[in-house]
Amino acid sequence: MNTKQTIAGAGLAIGLGLIAIASVIGFDTMQMQVPPSYARVGPQIFPYIIAIGLAATGAHIAWKSYRGGDEVIDEVEPTDWKSVGIIVAGLIAHMNLLKPLGFVPAGVILFLSVAFAFGSRRYGRDAIVGFLLVLLAYVGFTYGLGLQLPPGILKGLL
């Protein structure tokens, strides 16, 4: 009985989330100032259609998950939220540190967080592999392909 309630919960949340996205699109479209000459086949028709479609699909999914039926969105396996959280933290750290610290340190931090989340506890190996990989990518892409990656604290060294 208890599991049945969580089953409905996931689908219900997704359905309501889709309705929320639909209302954001609908609201944004209503705010548009459209010159009258374009009013007929203007830039608003498609957003409205998509918003209505999303809201209808969201309502359908939410209703089915609430009532139970053949399209219930359920949980398959227990989720390791800790690992998800570690990668999320790694990604957030990466985007914030990329410019101040530079591509190489930020990349190594991201690499280590992902490796840790996937269960690796061989920190030494991970750090060496991560550092070499990121360094190789930096050198290859900046000198080989002319990309502009932020050097950060290693400026002048590379």
Partner: peptide, 10 residues
């Protein structure tokens, strides 16, 4: 996966 994410963000 560490490598995939490094190249993805790059």
């Amino acid at each position: 996966y560490g490598g995939i994410l490094v190249f993805s963000t790059l």
